[in-house]
């Protein structure tokens, strides 16, 4: 019986990573689920749900030679995950400011304290080496409403960061 696994791959970016990995999975009767694949700092990162009728060791046996040849770090976990368990965000929080340590820690700690559940966080560093700036884009669920989040974020202003809240609406047709 098939079960879901989370395959993690990280390594220096190069052409053909996705093609080689997914072809090996297809050739070995794996079914792909949700995935996030993106380039971070010159590395290519893969988080991939795979349904497979076998064990971690079997997956490792056919994936390890390919990940080795691509010089990628491979990690595989059996997971409880399922498809069709999406949650919809209701609030987006955009933060930007001069780059310094602790921005994400401060913002997300304040968010956690008011029950904000992060579904997606993207961050990047722009600017120059002399004057870098940091940008964070967070989507999630304000489980206790938007007002407590607003209050919590207002408490962080003055730390040389800009914070903007934007309710997320979903038009259901």
């Amino acid at each position: 019986m098939s079960q879901w696994f989370m395959i993690t791959l990280v390594g220096k970016d190069q052409t053909g990573i996705v093609a080689k990995i997914t072809t090996a999975l297809f050739d070995n009767n794996c079914n792909l689920g949700e995935a996030s694949m993106l380039r971070l700092g010159g590395n290519f990162t893969v988080m991939l749900m795979v349904s497979y009728d076998g064990k971690v060791q079997n997956l490792t046996t056919f994936l390890q030679p390919i990940s080795d040849s691509l010089q990628l770090q491979l990690h595989i976990d059996a997971i409880d995950g399922q498809l069709h368990h999406h949650q919809q965000p209701n609030l987006r929080i955009r933060v930007h400011g001069a780059d310094r340590t602790g921005i994400v820690a401060q913002v997300t700690t304040a968010l956690a304290e008011v029950g904000f559940n992060i579904l997606d966080l993207e961050s990047d560093v722009g600017g120059t080496d002399n004057k870098p700036f940091y940008v964070v884009d967070i989507e999630g669920i304000a489980t206790n409403g938007i007002e407590p989040v607003e209050t919590a974020m207002q408490g962080l202003l003055g730390n040389e960061i800009e914070i903007k809240l934007e309710p997320i609406e979903t038009v259901m047709m």
Binding site: H84, H86, Q88, E169, T170, V171, M172, M173
Partner: peptide, 13 residues
Amino acid sequence: VGREGCMSVPDYI
């Protein structure tokens, strides 16, 4: 940009 869902496309936003 906005989020949309559709009765003819279940479980996808």
